[in-house]
Write a protein that binds this DNA or RNA. Structure first.
Lengths: 195, 195
DNA sequence: CATGTTCTAGAACGTCAAGCCTAGAATACT
DNA sequence: AGTATTCTAGGCTTGACGTTCTAGAACATG
């Protein structure tokens, strides 16, 4: 019937995701995407539609990947609170890697302030993380790992906000060590809230 | 000698700042800036140079304004710790106003990841806030408002990161109440660290 | 082998941006 | 009054981008 795709669509999407992470929606053009991904423009259009849809696909993929990865950390941890510690440490620690390719969620919010589709995807991701964190904190509280007066809901939210803050500051050159130290501080605050 | 400027340069810069806050560097064009500011393109070029320099000027002004305003809160407060509380409450609370025009610092970092000049301005602003917060926390500690084991340096940094996180999440529609609640949580955490 | 779809490479199109330039009106100084 | 500078209004140039189109090569299926 037809010549099959000679490229792995998922792999290309992954590549596009990386480029969007580093440069943002407007920071990379279709011609450059085509060149860097090793695929001609036409194939990009055939496979993903237009630029906006390619971006949304990449954003969706990023979201799924991030949420999945982080919820897995929660599941695999020996205890709920330890899971939270690992999630926060991993997430925020990633921001400290220098030079960081950046958090696509952060750039997506800034680059697509007026695109409801993009914002909806981001919202879903944020909610997914918040739900996971909250559930783990509730469990931790039930197990006595967390003080009874602490609010899992509020704690989850503040942890998330802080991590996104790291995601912003991580884009400043040389911020790696500072952020790494801040991650330790955040974890210490979490311990304070627990004890 | 010459016809004087018929517009107030500072006022126009303020207007440009607002537009850049809402839409980002690439989100608003020179023709639209000209129209919205009520000044013809040529006058913009005469007064501010090219678009990049106009943006940098707006960013500088934003930084000065923000730092100044926030350090003033520290000075006017009845006690150092209360100053910190007010600064954080004011800053993060601003993000909760809906719809928020957004924090120019956050968008500047994302929009200008490869412009050292822009990043340097932002860095200066972040450092200014950090220095002020740290100094206030040191004073608070000397007065016994803050536990002796607490680290003013680390506390200052984590507060800043969290507030920038609010600045990101504030761009999601409907996030106002959630952020407002998170501000309260953050202040409660500060109290925990103090007591 | 024939067919039809997808591939590649690259040209072409329309749009819009940034920046520059012109021309004429306005206004402070000498 | 004359002069020089800034103003406004708008057109022009150049270039980039997103998108579509053309033309021909590759290849799985009938």
């Amino acid at each position: 019937m037809a010549r099959p795709r000679t490229f792995d669509e998922a792999l290309v999407l992954e590549g596009a995701m990386e480029l969007f992470r580093e440069r943002g929606l407007h920071g990379i053009s279709i011609p450059e995407l085509s060149e860097r991904l090793g695929i001609c423009k036409q194939s990009l259009y055939n496979a993903f539609g237009d630029k906006r849809r390619l971006y949304l696909s990449a954003l969706r993929r990023w979201g799924e990947q991030q949420v999945e990865e982080k919820l897995a950390l929660l599941d695999q941890a020996p205890s709920p609170l330890e899971g939270v510690r690992r999630l926060v440490g991993e997430w925020a620690g990633l921001a400290a890697i220098c030079p960081s390719p950046g958090c696509l969620t952060v750039t997506a919010i800034v680059d697509n302030a007026d695109d409801p589709d993009a914002l909806a995807i981001v919202e879903g991701q944020v909610e997914g993380l918040e739900r996971g964190l909250r559930a783990a904190l509730v469990k931790a509280q039930a197990l006595g790992e967390l003080r009874a007066e602490a609010s899992p809901e509020r704690l989850a939210r503040i942890l998330i906000s802080t991590c996104y803050g790291f995601g912003v500051l991580a884009r400043l050159p040389g911020s790696g060590p500072v952020i790494e130290d801040s991650v330790a501080t955040l974890l210490a605050l979490l311990d304070d809230a627990a004890a």
